[in-house]
Amino acid sequence: MNKVEKKRIKEQETIEKMIHIYCIKNHHTKELCSECKELVNYAKARSQRCPFMAEKTFCAHCKVHCYRPEMREKIRQVMRFSGPRMIIYAPKTALWHMLCTIKERILK
Rank of each mutant, 00 (worst) to 15 (best):
K25A: 11
I9V: 13
E70K: 12
E16K: 14
H61D: 10
T57A: 13
I21W: 01
K25G: 03
K10V: 05
C66V: 09
I21L: 07
I106Y: 11
I88K: 10
I15A: 03
E38C: 01
M1L: 08
N26K: 15
M79N: 09
E104K: 12
E16I: 02
T57H: 10
T93L: 07
T29I: 00
L95R: 06
Q12I: 11
R8K: 14
H28N: 12
T101F: 03
I75F: 08
I24Q: 13
R80Y: 02
Y22K: 02
K25I: 01
T57L: 12
G83W: 00
P91Q: 03
Y42R: 06
S47M: 09
I9Q: 10
A94Y: 07
K25H: 15
E13I: 11
C59T: 09
H20K: 10
I87C: 02
E73V: 06
C36F: 05
C62K: 07
I15W: 09
M53G: 01
H97D: 11
K3E: 14
L32S: 04
M71P: 01
V4K: 11
P84T: 05
R46S: 00
K37D: 05
K25P: 04
G83C: 00
G83V: 02
N41S: 11
V4N: 09
H61R: 04
T93K: 01
C62F: 07
L39C: 00
S82H: 00
K10N: 07
M18Q: 06
Y42N: 06
A60L: 11
T57Y: 08
Q48I: 06
A43N: 12
E104V: 00
E104S: 10
E31D: 13
K92I: 12
Q77N: 12
C100Y: 02
K44S: 05
T101I: 03
R80D: 09
C66D: 13
A90V: 01
E5C: 07
C50H: 02
K6S: 05
I24D: 06
T101G: 11
S47D: 02
E16R: 15
E16Q: 12
F58D: 06
M98G: 10
W96S: 13
S47I: 11
T57F: 13
M71L: 06
A54E: 13
S47F: 10
H20T: 15
M71R: 12
E73Y: 03
M71I: 00
H65S: 06
K56R: 14
E31N: 13
P84N: 03
R80K: 14
M86T: 04
E104H: 15
I9F: 03
Y89D: 07
K3L: 11
C36N: 11
P51G: 09
C50N: 08
H28R: 10
L95D: 07
R68L: 14
A54D: 13
T14K: 08
A43M: 08
